[in-house]
Amino acid sequence: MSDPIVRFLGRVLALFAPRPRGRHRLEGIARALIPPPPPRFTERLDGHASPVVRPYVLTPGERRAQRERRRALYLATLGIDTGPRHIHGVPVPVAAR
């Protein structure tokens, strides 16, 4: 138990937890239940090894499609159904939209 937080919590639990009587002691149980601390990350990260990627940047076509979807959702809240112009590659007539 080299981690100071784990040692502190162990001492606090030892003060406030009731001590069992008999042959079984709390210390043995507490040591078995507390997992060892994870190993520390010691390597330095190389910033030039990974490319700078911004997945939230959209192409103009993706931005246009997103704007059309948002506009269709907004108009749907007003009761106006814009609908798709093509379903499975087949043009949809205006009366069906």
Rank of each mutant, 00 (worst) to 15 (best):
M1V: 03
D3M: 00
D3C: 05
V6G: 02
R7N: 04
F8M: 15
G10F: 01
V12K: 05
L13Q: 03
L13R: 04
L13K: 02
L15C: 04
L15A: 11
F16I: 11
F16T: 13
P18G: 01
P20K: 04
R21F: 08
G22R: 05
G22I: 06
R23W: 02
H24C: 02
R25H: 12
L26H: 02
E27V: 11
E27N: 05
G28H: 11
I29Y: 09
R31C: 08
I34V: 15
I34H: 01
P36S: 14
P38A: 12
P38M: 03
P39L: 12
R40S: 11
R40K: 13
F41C: 06
F41H: 10
L45I: 15
L45T: 13
D46Q: 06
G47E: 11
G47A: 08
A49S: 09
S50A: 14
P51L: 09
V53L: 14
R54K: 11
P55W: 02
Y56T: 15
V57A: 10
V57M: 12
L58F: 08
L58M: 14
T59S: 15
P60H: 05
E62C: 02
R63W: 04
A65P: 03
Q66V: 07
R67L: 15
R67F: 10
E68N: 12
R70G: 14
R70W: 11
A72F: 00
L73R: 14
L73E: 15
L73S: 12
Y74G: 12
Y74Q: 13
L75E: 09
L78D: 04
L78H: 09
G79E: 03
G79P: 06
G79N: 04
G79A: 02
T82N: 01
G83Q: 05
G83V: 01
P84L: 12
R85Y: 06
I87H: 07
I87L: 14
I87R: 10
I87D: 07
V92E: 07
V92R: 13
V92K: 08
V94I: 11
V94P: 09
A96K: 07
A96I: 03
R97A: 05
